[in-house]
Write a protein that binds this DNA or RNA. Structure first.
Lengths: 231, 231
DNA sequence: TAGATTGTTAATCGATTAACAATC
DNA sequence: TAGATTGTTAATCGATTAACAATC
């Protein structure tokens, strides 16, 4: 049986299923149908069943999915069956918030170190987590076998940090800096640029149709502008 | 000419183009080709040209795009040609970071108020921005004609806040709480659940193939488990 | 003019939805 | 058994890529 590659769209939905299952288990709910999961997630029931089917047959026809059993499968699929140690680079507002957020809310992940360039921050702590110098990153990665890192530094510093991380063996980066990072093929980068999230949302905050019609009329009414580039 | 709906995938790329154009303009670069933009964004040149073509013909054959002109078009398309006032609900770590981040880094957006439930925070400020009670939200939205809001409250409170916001006229919500918000059809919600971003990245941090093969063998080797749900 | 690059149409690819047999 | 819900195949839909004429 050839190994079937799993698409990014499927992988993105897996943590949503996990979150919902965690909530259901907490509420002592033992069985859940794809329709129930559809209500909680917003994805269609067909899509949910198809997503699971890529990895195996986890349900019981007529009854649905056992929440505990399905959760166990999903954490193994994602690779969360053991707690993942991660580091945060950048101890500014965002880095601090991300460190605290993941410590408090994300039980599958453990922030084991924070790194910054600023000597005034080095040696301090975020809650119980030490802030080290970025110079210490190579040794720290090697010692703690870090495979996943979070970048929360200014745009200008992000590429250098990414290079430093990947050269030392980091395989996955969650990047909050507003730049496209260039990394080797086997390294995965997810961009979580908050500015971009908010701006693309703004597109939908006013009447799309009116705005675009106005734009087209402008372009039509000022054809000369089109040659402006060559002036 | 019938109005052609613009797909979500296109809209998500627009702010990336805007960010790159802002950088190019700052560097006094006047012309840019779709190939250049491809290098900076990671999208293909064909896709970039096609994206622009949905809204008009902004380039010059043989020469490329004038950066200033293209930027002007894109901010009008997104609806960023006037600064957008927004509010942040939740003045915890994440809310504070988001408030500061958008004040400092996002010139197209203006955070005009922060809201929290906690009486110890109400009356204080984040930099120069006041923290108000969530009870003040309706009056504040009406007065300031707020159309876009950011939710950074705990999961349990998020749906109530979303209801409060949308009832009072908010049209777009950036939601950081780990829940699927139920909103009226004309309201747009973008989820920016940081836990989920990180978890889906972890999928790629170790050898996918090995992990999934191991999983399939487990399932095969313990077929009896499949009926466990009905025990 | 020759070279470069856009704008647009057609072809391909991938993901979602629909349908339904399998089966608990 | 009857009702419910999965797992899977086929059909549809949408987005990306390829190709190239238009044209600066």
């Amino acid at each position: 049986m050839p190994y079937q590659h799993i698409s990014k769209s499927v992988v993105k939905r897996l943590p949503v299923y996990l979150r919902i299952l965690d909530q259901l288990i907490q509420r002592k709910i033992e069985m859940v149908s794809s329709k129930d999961l559809s209500n909680e997630s917003g994805f269609t029931a067909e899509q949910i069943r198809k997503d699971f089917a890529y990895f195996g047959a986890f349900g019981t026809r007529g009854a649905g999915y056992n929440t505990v059993y399905l959760r166990e499968k999903i954490i193994k699929i994602i690779g969360l069956d053991q707690v993942i140690d991660t580091i945060v680079v950048g101890a500014g507002n965002l880095g601090t918030a991300l460190t605290r957020y993941n410590s408090a809310k994300n039980f599958y992940v453990n922030v084991v170190g924070v790194f910054d360039h600023d000597p005034r921050l080095i040696g301090k702590k975020i809650d119980s987590i030490d802030i080290f110098s970025v110079d210490d990153i190579p040794a720290f990665i090697a010692e703690n076998k870090i495979k996943v890192a979070i970048i929360a530094v200014p745009a200008a510093a992000a590429q250098d940090i990414a290079d430093l991380l990947t050269v030392n063996g980091v395989k996955a980066i969650l990047n909050f800096a507003p730049v496209k990072l260039k990394v080797a093929g086997e390294v995965h980068v997810h961009n979580a640029d908050l500015t971009i999230e908010l701006q693309s949302l703004i597109y939908y905050s006013s009447a799309e149709e009116d705005r675009l019609k106005r734009l087209k009329q402008e372009v039509k009414g000022s054809k000369s502008l089109k040659s402006l580039p060559l002036d």
